[in-house]
Write a protein that binds this DNA or RNA. Structure first.
Lengths: 347, 347
DNA sequence: GTAGAAGTGGGTAACGTTATCCATCGCCTC
DNA sequence: GAGGCGATGGATAACGTTACCCACTTCTAC
């Protein structure tokens, strides 16, 4: 049996022909719509199976739903996003919805077309993970398509927010380090070119909380921030900057595990021991942070719960909910071997 | 200015009206099609800018292209895929094509609907990263849509293949360990339920090469394979199995860095030192393998080159190439601190 | 027994775009 | 000056699906 190149797809009309009913009837069966008898349903379903029919998503997009959830994430390299995705996909399983992902990148300029791409592809719902776009843009998207924003704290009437209580998390870290006896605690934060309101962005919240807690403990003079990126390279560069200071810190709080990994590398390279000379703490409690060789103290925010909640909220919105919801997870400290009391002479 | 809910998208007809031309003319300008004067082009472009028009991808899909490349990847947690994606996206930049990703998961059963989802969304090209699907299925997809398969070795007339020379890579690792003096070298491989021809799957090739090289060095009696998964958990479990053997291995070759990370954890937990008691090697040379705390000997296969080549091949196919291409990258060994001579009594 | 309701099936017009024609206008050539 | 040709712009029919209606039948209630 030679297959002819690019044979035509099986369409709803083929199914209708084969089952000797109207295309309308077939469409109704597919959508579980009202107005089909059980007999009709069985008949059409049989025809669908026989012909191996699958709805053409692009055609559906013209009139109805695409059964697609679009996920915009900055970059797939961050393993924390994998946790979120797992939660999302688990919740979407068996709903008929499929999640597609698109990378937004590190700049607003790169992110904008990625968001457009999802909108243009007519997804039924959008999950934006730590977007850089200004709030007005998110609201514009949210007005057009059900939207959930993950990782930003702002209130909006048109989209839902899922986030971690970053203030509580950062507080946990800094208090943990101070409790161990550290005074010269430095912070590595993330540089963005976002035009969002700073207080809505998680890295700003973490950094500001760090500063606030330091001040509250009369450590304002010890505040030291390296502004690089929440990436391995960023953590590496940031730690190098901090280590080069005349008053070397005894502890580094990296705003994300990824950055903490890089910081770890830089500290080692400088010939210093962790936690003997310098303590290091991260954020996100990614699985790698738990590896015995790394064993970085971190903040756990349940990514799976965040992802699964985001999916649930999206489905609710698709079903018609219009009120806005904010969902926040409470972080917890996971102490590991990377943090300990500072060396005696520095205490 | 109160915005009305869900206002209508700007369509090609709106642009045509605004520019006082036909929709056909607008379409031609968008597609850079033949038959438009420079004056017409400018006029239409001005209207497009003024109205902020963007083509509706779903509508385009009904007739022409979607300017979308679909990427199926097993799971985003594997950082090696991030390298591939970086290469792909860099190549796609400024071509007007957007890459969307979808997770295929760890089983054929989960992967099938993911592949369907891309086909149904009418993407212009598909990149499948280490798919589990049987070859016939890949060919069926390839006949319908330009396809590149990354990570499998099979020859096909309808799709292109991009892969690493896994045989050479595995040989490098095993020879490296033997050269250090190891004899009891174990391997951690990946379990799949794929119905693909085994010799086409990279983990099978790595495992078989391991066995072959062992036999070639008269070490057939020392062959020990743990079949778990190319994940952190898999590496952890696999290493535990191997450590529990009466004849404990002095070296473990994990088929992927992810698994090597888990193996590292298991070895540490067992109170053994790396490389003092046991050497560990991985595969993929992910960035994390280079972290000083991990420093795992690994095999470098240039993911960025693979991704960028995959993109190039897809674009060529979309432009009409029908001949099949195979592209293979040559791997290289990156020795790090995790491998050394075996302890004296075990040599 | 009849009016109305409920249940069931189908016809049809969109949705936004593009491919395929077709028509017109200059201009060139002999 | 007629014939032809390239350049340009537009009309129109799809693409596969669904929402909205309408028509018909069979119940139910009085």
């Amino acid at each position: 049996m030679t297959t002819r190149d690019r044979r035509r797809r099986v369409t709803i009309a083929d199914v209708a022909n084969h089952a000797q009913v109207s295309t309308t009837a077939v469409s109704k069966v597919i959508r579980n719509a009202y107005g089909v008898s059980p007999a009709m349903r069985d008949r059409v379903k049989a025809a669908i199976d026989e012909l191996g029919y699958r709805p053409h998503a692009a055609a559906r997009a013209m009139r109805g739903r695409t059964f697609t959830i679009g996920v915009m994430l900055p970059h797939i390299r961050n393993p924390f996003f994998a946790d979120i995705l797992d939660g999302l996909n688990a919740q979407l399983d068996d709903t008929g919805y499929q999640a597609i992902m698109i990378q937004g990148g590190a700049t607003q300029k790169a992110e904008a077309p990625a968001i457009d791409a999802l909108v243009d592809r007519q997804v039924d719902g959008i999950l934006m993970i730590s977007p850089l776009a200004p709030r007005a843009r998110l609201e514009a998207v949210g007005r057009e398509i059900p939207t959930v924003v993950l990782g930003r704290h702002e209130r909006s009437a048109v989209y839902d927010a899922v986030f971690d209580d970053d203030e509580a998390g950062a507080e946990l870290v800094v208090n943990h380090l101070i409790g161990l006896g550290h005074r010269r605690i430095a912070h590595i934060t993330h540089q963005d070119n976002s035009t969002a309101r700073p207080s809505d962005l998680l890295h700003i919240i973490r950094a500001e909380t760090y500063e606030r807690v330091m001040r509250e403990h009369d450590l304002a003079a010890e505040i030291a921030i390296a502004t690089t990126y929440y990436t391995e390279e960023g953590g590496y560069d940031g730690a190098q900057q901090l280590l080069a200071r005349s008053r070397r810190p005894t502890a580094i709080f990296a705003g994300a595990d990824q950055a903490a990994f890089g910081a770890l590398a830089a500290v080692h390279e400088a010939g210093l021991a962790v936690p003997g000379d310098i303590s290091i703490a991260g954020y996100d409690n990614t699985r790698l942070a738990a590896l015995p060789n790394i064993a970085i103290t971190s903040i756990d925010q349940d990514g799976a719960v965040m992802g699964h909640t985001a999916a649930r909220l999206l489905l609710e919105r698709i079903e018609g909910r219009t009120s806005a919801v904010r969902f926040s997870v409470t972080p917890s400290l996971v102490p590991r071997r990377s943090t300990a009391a500072p060396p005696p002479q520095d205490g």
